[in-house]
């Protein structure tokens, strides 16, 4: 990366609860997001993808590691000194119902963002709210309504308008379309694509849906039990996966095509508890090619080609198969 990254995360770790058995939600995660870039975080439950989003926004405190926003380390700053981050990084939530205060009118939900940073007041404030609503495809006249008067997709638009109100550079989108119906999901995906282009937004796009991530993102990071398994361009990760977990995840996602090959290779067993992750490679207990070696060392991310990296002792693409398998 030649340009200064907008967001650079280094060795980020978050443990919930106390020793000896903390929940290891995020473990030694590093990545960066360039201005205007969309990085997808993909994983199943317990992967730590949502925790990473909240850590980056400093809604929770990291156990260790650094988070640099525009070069400045914000990982340990007290809340009072986070004004700039609050202005530059915003969040869009999964649940369109719980993410809007049911007792406030849309005007106040969006206006609160303007007030918090003294961006507009009086008639200018109303104008700005109207403008934001129109930006997300809602009539300005709806600003005096309450959230319950809107459908799920419309509420999600309101949540997006609230995030846009402070003109952020980065948006953490936590499963923003997962709770929506397919037809509405498509509307919101297209809206987010438009806004991204129009405002040059960078995004951390958190999702469990590989199809959505592949469509939305420039690069993808695949997480399992709090660690990055594979990271690279969306194309590389989705069409030339190098990590056995990424392959399994792709194989397990049902394709909406009756002619596509049915799911054959399947992972057995359950996702282990993040309170007691396996030693060595966390994926080894379900991995089809795991060996004894995998229990001993945590595999480091290694480069495939370009900036495509994966954390596995064996490179399936180069037939680096374990002798036993």
């Amino acid at each position: 990366m030649s340009a200064l990254p907008l967001l650079a995360v280094e060795g980020l770790t978050k443990h919930f609860g106390r020793a000896p058995h903390p929940v290891r939600a995020v473990e030694d995660v590093s990545f960066h997001v360039a201005p205007g870039e969309v990085l997808g975080l993909v994983g199943e439950s317990g992967s730590g993808k949502s925790t990473i989003g909240r850590l980056v926004l400093r809604l929770i405190h990291p156990t260790s590691g650094t988070i640099r926003f525009e070069g400045e380390d914000i990982s340990r700053r007290p809340e009072r000194q986070l004004k700039a981050l609050r202005r530059n990084a915003q969040m869009v939530f999964q649940d369109p119902y719980a993410s809007l205060n049911p007792r406030l009118r849309v005007r106040d939900i969006i206006g609160e963002a303007l007030d918090a940073h003294r961006l507009a007041s009086g008639s200018r404030r109303t104008e700005r709210i109207a403008e934001l609503l129109e930006t997300v495809g809602l009539p300005a006249a709806h600003m005096s309504r309450f959230p319950h008067e809107f459908s799920g997709g419309q509420r999600q638009r309101i949540g997006i308008a609230r995030a846009l109100a402070v003109e952020p550079k980065l948006i953490i989108a936590d499963e923003p379309v997962s709770a929506l119906d397919v037809s509405v999901q498509a509307q919101v995906i297209n809206l987010m694509q438009d806004l991204r282009q129009r405002f040059g937004l960078a995004m951390l796009f958190i999702s469990h849906d590989l199809d959505v991530v592949e469509l939305m993102c420039d690069r993808i990071a695949v997480l399992y039990l709090g660690r990055i398994m594979e990271i690279g361009s969306a194309k590389d990760v989705a069409s030339r996966p190098r990590h056995p977990y990424t392959r399994a995840l792709l194989a397990a996602s049902p394709k909406a095509d009756p002619d596509a090959p049915k799911i054959r290779r399947m992972l057995t067993g359950d996702i282990p508890s993040p309170m007691a992750p396996p030693s060595g490679c966390v994926f080894r207990t379900r991995c089809p090619i795991a060996t004894e070696e995998c229990a001993r060392n945590v595999p480091k991310l290694r480069s495939a080609e370009g900036d495509h990296q994966f954390a596995c002792l064996y490179d399936m693409a180069n037939d680096e198969r374990p002798a036993a398998a």
Partner: peptide
């Protein structure tokens, strides 16, 4: 989760 969904569908 998707990997578990695949098991249940099968």
């Amino acid at each position: 989760d998707v990997t578990i969904q695949a098991q249940i569908l099968a």
